[in-house]
Write a protein that binds this DNA or RNA. Structure first.
Length: 137
DNA sequence: GCCAACGTTGGC
DNA sequence: GCCAACGTTGGC
């Protein structure tokens, strides 16, 4: 059995919110135009767990999604540089975990969200993922 | 709306 | 290959 990896993706709720995602049941994660984020998308494997973060408005982790289809050509562009993955919602956090909470948490000091604020798709360590879920329950 | 961080582009 | 200029993202 392969190792599950953990990720965090950002979305501006104005563009694509957790609520909309849950209504859709499944989406392809498009719009990534940053190489580092793209590389992360390519590393995602089916079954990996992904935290869903609302940027700008809310600034909080709102739920858990999972990868249901690995990276393939971004259907919204011809440019072969860009890929998308398919995600499905798994569950909503009982309590959203705010950026403020994450910043204040000793165990989450080094999380990508804090250290590299602009990156929209980032890897999480298992401990970080677990810690955020703990804070959100 | 401003600004900091940082990635990308283009001139040399 | 360096670096300044510029654009984008996201927090405040």
């Amino acid at each position: 059995m392969k190792n599950t990896l953990f990720w965090l993706v950002k979305s501006e709720p104005v563009k694509y919110s957790w609520e909309k995602f849950n209504k859709d049941g499944r989406t392809f994660w498009d719009g990534v135009r940053n190489y580092q984020a793209r590389n992360n998308l390519r590393l995602m494997q089916e079954g990996d767990l992904v935290l869903f973060y609302h940027s700008n408005d809310g600034k909080e982790v709102v739920g858990i999604a999972k990868v249901v289809k690995e990276a393939y050509q971004d259907p919204t562009t011809e440019d072969p540089n860009w890929v998308v993955v398919d995600l499905s919602p798994v569950e909503t956090l009982k309590k959203p975990v705010t950026l403020e909470t994450i910043k204040a948490d000793e165990q989450l000091k080094d999380v990508g969200l804090v250290r590299q604020g602009r990156l929209s798709v980032m890897a999480l360590k298992r401990e970080e993922f677990d810690r955020i879920l703990e804070l959100g329950s």
